[in-house]
């Protein structure tokens, strides 16, 4: 079976500073991988390379054996065409820390936009799919609300529905609960847990250690642009092999 995601020796620089210093990561279909690590360790950057929100200078990313973002022609590595990259972005879906819902569109229209304009579905088909996903995240009753009329937790759930409705192979979550008031965190985590139960493949950057422990079948600990340690959370969280991880776990809260 081919791997769903294969990252090899990923290098990313901002100017002169290298923020990813050779990252490898494999995921099979149905895997739920949580990425933990202190702020600035490169978690977000790794996610953003996978869907080409960031360019990267070295290494390869493959999804279902398809090389993402770059191609090598006559020994020269070059960025793929924008249209091609736009198509490849559909292989993944992403939920952001700041939700990034479109404020001028209702919850429903946020979800249908991509279905209609990108997937070229009819309005009715798009609506059916969008309503199904809004129902899944518990917001069907609010489908005609604008983002400004929803709580942070509700907005994030709509944002997740918007991403999932596009039927990606892999979902990327970047600290989706970090901008939320504590009492709204659980409703969002619950949505992600439900997706995990359905077998959705997910790569999740999170600071919620308890959630990572419960939902992940593998955890990656990022440390200064490298993978410091990875493995089963039940082992890693109990008996960390590296000093770094032990330290990090000590400063994290398991709520």
């Amino acid at each position: 079976m081919t791997k769903l995601l294969e990252i090899r020796d990923l290098h990313k620089r901002y100017g002169a500073t290298e923020v990813l210093k050779g990252v490898d990561c494999d995921m099979a279909k149905g895997d739920v991988v949580c990425v933990i690590g202190s702020s600035g360790s490169g978690k977000t950057t790794m996610l953003r390379c996978i869907n080409m929100l960031e360019e990267f200078q070295g290494g390869t990313i493959r999804i279902n054996d398809e090389e993402i973002g770059y191609e090598t022609v006559g020994g020269m590595r070059r960025r793929k065409r924008e249209r091609e990259i736009a198509r490849q972005r559909l292989l993944t879906g992403m939920a952001f820390q700041q939700f990034n819902l479109f404020p001028h569109l209702t919850a429903l229209d946020n979800v249908t936009l991509g279905l209609i304009k990108v997937k070229k579905l009819s309005r009715a088909e798009a609506r059916t799919i969008a309503e199904r996903w809004l129902e899944r995240v518990g917001l069907l009753a609010r489908k005609d609300h604008y983002p400004g009329q929803l709580s942070g937790g509700q907005q994030q759930r709509v944002a997740i529905a918007r991403a999932i409705a596009m039927n990606p192979l892999l979902m990327l979550f970047d600290e989706v609960t970090s901008a939320l008031d504590p009492e709204l965190v659980n409703e969002v985590l619950q949505v992600i847990k439900d997706l995990a139960r359905d077998g959705m493949s997910m790569l999740i950057v999170t600071h919620e250690m308890r959630f990572a422990y419960e939902v992940a079948n593998r955890v990656i600990f990022m440390n200064q642009g490298r993978i410091g340690e990875e493995g089963d959370p039940r082992e890693m969280f109990v008996t960390p092999k590296t000093e770094r991880l032990a330290e990090f776990l000590k400063t994290s809260t398991f709520r």
Binding site: L53, A86, M94, F102, L113, G114, K117, K119, R162, M166
Partner: peptide
Amino acid sequence: GQTEAAKVIGLTFHQAFIYVLAPQ
């Protein structure tokens, strides 16, 4: 984040401009 959210649902720049940026 608006442009990025548009990109990750597969909108081209052109579409992102018309449906996301211009209305705002």
